[in-house]
Design a protein around this nucleic acid. Structure first.
Length: 377
DNA sequence: TATACGTGGGG
DNA sequence: TCCCCAAGTAT
């Protein structure tokens, strides 16, 4: 067992605790949604769903989860897959490190743990991409262990139940919430209790307009009693995205387009792209020599042509103002550097591209009138 | 501890 | 258009 750090304990009123468990579980039994990952308690299936659901809406995840499970029905299937295939099934979901970490972790489980997802907190927490929340979620849902699984929903619910004004953006606040969660936890039904908390946050205890009239525990909620449910949770505002000028090179030769795998770390790590340069201050024109230089260092000499179009793409932390520039490869590196490859124009769905590049490829396709038909998008 | 890391939906 | 948000983790 992992040693929990010495967190303060909160001696909650016993009657309050029992009533909240009873009301929450009863409400969950009556109102829980039919979701694909609730059809079994297979630890692998629970695990995949929890990774996909990180910072991602349920409605967005459902089709991805179904496609993923049809193609990788068991942990061994996923462990034996190529990383490019895994990324292809993650294409468009975002936070792509989740997919690479999950794949690496599943391979470790297959080889080191005999294909069985670890059942103890210490071991499962060492797997890539499995943090405090995911460890608690898998252990409670799949293995019925009384571990807290405190996500954004649970923090919102708790901040209201206990009228807490701690900033939920701070890691220390979540640790405090986990201490509360351990106190309130239903030891008989840990998985349902954790899911009930999250379901309440998702269906009733909304961020902006909580439906307190429909809440099964409204009489037990301190924020409601004080009429401050709309003021909670307290959360520090995020910084706005930083604008960047970006150029995508759409470089052709003999009906093929040059594409490049992005580096293994950082933004869109490991995904395919068009050759790209980005800069905060330079204008787009000033960026062209940088792109030429990058390509020359890889052995490509390019003559630039028309601007094919422009588009914007907003990440959580930066905003790309993209110019798509047509180019013709005059001379080509032999052999082709590892991170580059040629794709037949229009056949983009053989590789996994993030959304920003899908936008650009769609613009280029509309220019050239090719009949691009992506299989997923 | 604060920041990087995607994307899409809704008010 | 803008802002907030959504089942977090790694560093």
């Amino acid at each position: 067992m992992r040693e929990r750090k010495a967190e303060p304990t909160y001696d909650l009123d016993q009657d309050w605790t029992e009533e909240i468990r009873k009301n929450l579980l009863h409400w969950y039994d009556q109102n829980k949604r039919d979701l694909p990952w609730r059809e079994s308690r297979d630890p692998y299936r629970v695990w995949v769903s929890e990774i996909m659901l990180q910072q991602t809406r349920v409605d967005t995840v459902i089709p991805y989860y179904q496609r993923f499970m049809e193609n990788f029905p068991t942990l061994i299937d996923l462990a034996e897959a190529d990383e490019d295939e895994v990324l292809k099934y993650w294409e468009g979901l975002g936070y792509y490190s989740r997919a690479r970490n999950l794949h690496a972790a599943v391979k470790k489980v297959a080889t080191v743990y005999g294909g069985k997802v670890p059942e103890d907190l210490e071991t499962i927490s060492q797997l890539k991409g499995v943090g405090t929340y995911t460890a608690g979620a898998v252990l409670s849902i799949a293995y019925n262990q009384p571990e807290p699984a405190v996500d954004g929903n649970v923090m919102r619910v708790f901040s209201r139940w206990f009228a807490m004004k701690d900033d939920v953006a701070k890691p220390a606040t979540r640790r405090k919430m986990e201490a509360y969660a351990l106190q309130v936890m239903c030891r008989e039904r840990p998985g349902d209790f954790n899911q009930g908390l999250m379901e309440l946050g998702a269906l009733i205890c909304h961020p902006l307009s909580p439906v307190c009239d429909s809440c099964p525990v409204n009489s037990l909620c301190q924020a409601r009693q004080q009429g401050i449910q709309h003021e909670l949770p307290v959360k520090k505002k995020a910084k706005p995205p930083v604008p960047y000028n970006v150029i995508f090179g759409y470089i052709k030769q003999d009906g093929h387009v040059l594409v490049q795998r992005r580096p293994q770390g950082g933004l869109l790590a490991g995904m395919w792209s068009l050759p790209t340069v980005e800069e905060q201050k330079k204008g787009n024109d000033a960026l062209i020599p940088d792109l030429s230089k990058n390509l020359a260092e890889a052995g490509f000499h390019v003559e630039w042509g028309r601007v094919l179009g422009e588009t914007d793409h907003i990440f959580s932390h930066r905003r790309w103002k993209i110019t798509i520039l047509e180019g013709e490869a005059l001379s080509v590196s032999q052999p082709l550097p590892e991170e580059y490859t040629w794709v037949t124009e229009g056949s983009w769905d053989s590789l996994a591209f993030p959304k920003a590049y899908h936008k650009a490829l769609r613009i280029a396709d509309s220019r050239f009138g090719s009949r691009f038909q992506g299989s997923l998008f």
